[in-house]
Nucleic acid binder design. Structure first.
Length: 586
RNA sequence: GGCCCCGUGGUGUAGCCUGGUCAACACACCUGCCUGUCACGCAGAAGAUCGCGAGUUCAAAUCUCGUCGGGGUCGCCA
């Protein structure tokens, strides 16, 4: 029964040969006298024909065939001939004239047709993921993901990295995301945590003399789901000894080029552009700017500091900002109602309002125009490069709210006004991040990245004087406005690590109990080292033009962390709980 | 934890606002006919009590509350 070909590979040149094919029935067209079946496997589709003139037994049996039956057929590969070809199929010029049919298995009627253009709820697809994955589109996603991992392994190997596995069951650590916990049977009341990333282990591997490590590990963060993240995800994790930021960037650019070109067939030019965190925030209001379109944020604080519009001038005098974006041709396209909708959109980011001025041939048009001098209005328009027909939108608030609301407004408008070239891939390094972020609620600093991130040499004195001004050697890779990798030069000197821990107000007791081992290891001759971890799911998602990582994960979880196919998570028996000495408090 | 959208035969929707043909349409499914289709065609048949629960009402898919599930998002995501 050994098959001779895959369904998608037969061409006119094969005509006259005998083919033995296996696959699933995609569709059956019964013409009474002759029956056509589109047979599908992972490679594509071939039309097979059951003709009583060729084989009566096979034709008779073919009456029983239904969608998703599993078949073995053998027969002559035949030129379909003039007028009978299907130009939509790569195999459309040939067909198999079946002389032998074996129904290897029957199938229930599937809940949806196994083909690319289906219109079903994702819930249904996830429940029957095995049917969903049979669709050519999903097969392509699985293949692309495989190719990406293969390209990665080959490249990393060539670059002198070795793949080392690190534990899935490890210690819970303070800071960072919420851990996924696993109870220990052998140690009642104690828990393992699943890795948020193999961060500490990969640094330990540098201390272990591995020099260049990589791994494609599953990572876990018990935070709420989004389109681009879920509980369980995959990273390409690597770390390099005696390496600087530039070394990591260079290796990563090579890796991206390799992956995108080999797995995604997308050409990549290196080196990538770099932009400081400060510049990204200033120009785009985001540390992961989508640089495929303009409409940048424009700071107008100085121009409106003394204007009569109190909403603006008061904000400026209270250390706030007034920034705006100019929407090309927006004066004509946006009605009051449209602008109200945009106001609702920025309200999500705590903006208290959205001021607007239309620029027309006759002048400026808005309810707030009367609060500004003609001179100020002209200065604003000039700085925003707004010309007649444009709509100027403003948010006045704290720098964070201004950045959040305008960056998201910009993205919204960019998409809705079709300003984004969907075929473009903008790779961008965002560098020079601050070392800490102030947490007002807890009245302490938090690491902007993580607590092993090295400050720049210039910033080390600031750790004692003004930590908020300290810069880190942390870098992010951004593609089309998506953060796809985050890395840093790590601290390799105990004295500096100690200072950081002090700055973060982590008590010596907590340090000792949580990563005393790490601190100790650090003091046994740690080489300078640096690393980064691109997210595999997001990379594949971007290569395929998808907007959701579930499309590139074989068996993804829902927003509530459930697997609709297997039913996980689920209850366990009282016996299992008793073994762990766990009581469920309902 | 908050906000928003969705939940009606197998699938996708209509009906819901303005309760009173307990339900319409398309595809799929089933039967019959058909030797060249490829979203085959034609004829016919079957199939849902409207996610679940409670309430309002003479009467609920339709109104109210709760709840469960799916999605988006804010918070969260070192």
């Amino acid at each position: 029964m050994k098959r001779s070909h895959y369904c998608g590979e037969l061409r006119l040149a094969n005509a006259g040969q005998t083919a033995k094919l296996t696959g699933w029935v995609m569709r059956r067209r019964d013409h009474g006298g002759v029956i056509f079946v589109d047979l599908r496997d992972k490679s594509g589709i071939t039309q097979v024909v059951f003709d009583p003139m060729i084989d009566q037994i096979a034709h008779e049996l073919a009456n029983q065939i239904r969608n998703e039956f599993v078949l073995y057929v053998s027969g002559e590969i035949r030129n379909r001939g003039e007028g009978a070809t299907n130009p939509n199929l790569p195999t459309g010029e040939i067909e198999i004239a079946v002389d032998q049919l074996e129904i290897l298995n029957t199938a229930h009627t599937p809940p949806f047709l196994v083909e690319d253009d289906i219109n079903v709820a994702e819930e249904v697809r996830l429940k029957h993921r095995y049917l969903d994955l049979r669709r050519p589109k999903m097969q392509r996603a699985l293949l692309t993901r495989h190719k990406a991992m293969l390209a990665c392994r080959n490249y990393m190997n060539e670059q002198g990295f070795i793949e080392v596995e690190t534990p899935i069951l490890m210690n819970s650590t303070p800071e960072g995301a919420r851990d996924v916990l696993v109870p220990s049977r052998l140690n009642h009341g104690q828990f393992y945590a699943l890795p948020q990333s193999p961060q500490q282990f990969k640094q330990i591997l540098m201390m272990s003399g591995v020099d260049r490590y990589f791994q494609i590990p599953k990572c876990f963060r018990d935070e709420d789901t989004r389109a681009d993240r879920q509980l369980e995800f995959t990273q390409i994790d690597y770390e390099m000894s005696f390496a600087t930021q530039d070394d990591v960037i260079e290796v990563t650019e090579g890796l991206m080029k390799r992956i995108f070109e080999e797995a995604g067939d997308i050409p990549v030019t290196v080196p990538f552009n770099r932009m400081s965190y400060a510049e990204a925030i200033s120009r785009f209001g985001s540390d992961k700017p989508d640089t495929r379109f303009d409409m940048e944020l424009c700071d107008l604080s100085d121009l409106v500091a003394n204007c009569d519009f109190k909403v603006f001038s008061n904000v400026v005098s209270n250390d706030g900002q007034v920034k705006g974006i100019a929407v090309p041709d927006g004066a004509n396209k946006f009605s009051r109602r449209d602008i109200d909708a945009l106001t609702d959109l920025v309200a999500v980011y705590q903006a208290k309002g959205l001021a607007w001025i239309k620029v027309t041939e006759e002048g400026f048009d808005s309810g707030i125009v009367k609060f500004f001098t003609e001179e100020t209005l002209n200065a604003i328009a000039e700085r925003m490069k707004a010309t007649p027909g444009d709509l100027m939108l403003f948010v006045a608030d704290t720098p964070k709210i201004v950045a959040d609301s305008l960056s998201n407004l910009r993205l919204h408008l960019g998409r809705n006004l079709d300003l984004i070239d969907q075929n473009r891939y903008d790779f961008l390094w965002v560098v020079d991040f601050p070392l800490f972020e102030w947490n007002a609620e807890e009245n302490r600093y938090e690491p902007a990245h993580h607590l092993f991130t090295a400050p720049t040499d210039d910033s080390i004195p600031l750790l004692d004087t003004d930590p908020s001004k300290a810069q880190s050697q942390h870098y992010d890779l951004v593609i089309n406005g998506n953060e796809v990798a985050s890395g840093s030069v790590r601290i390799h000197q105990w004295e500096i690590q100690q200072k950081i821990l002090e700055n973060l107000k982590i008590s010596p007791e907590e340090v000792k109990s949580r990563f005393g081992y790490f601190i100790e290891a650090l003091q046994y001759g740690t080489p300078p080292h640096a690393g980064i971890a691109p997210g595999l799911d997001r990379l594949v998602m971007l290569m395929l033009g998808e907007e959701n990582i579930r499309e590139v994960i074989a068996f993804p979880k829902t927003q509530r962390g459930a697997c609709l196919m297997t039913g996980a998570p689920s209850d366990v028996t009282d016996f299992q709980l008793a073994e762990l000495s766990i009581k469920i408090d309902t």
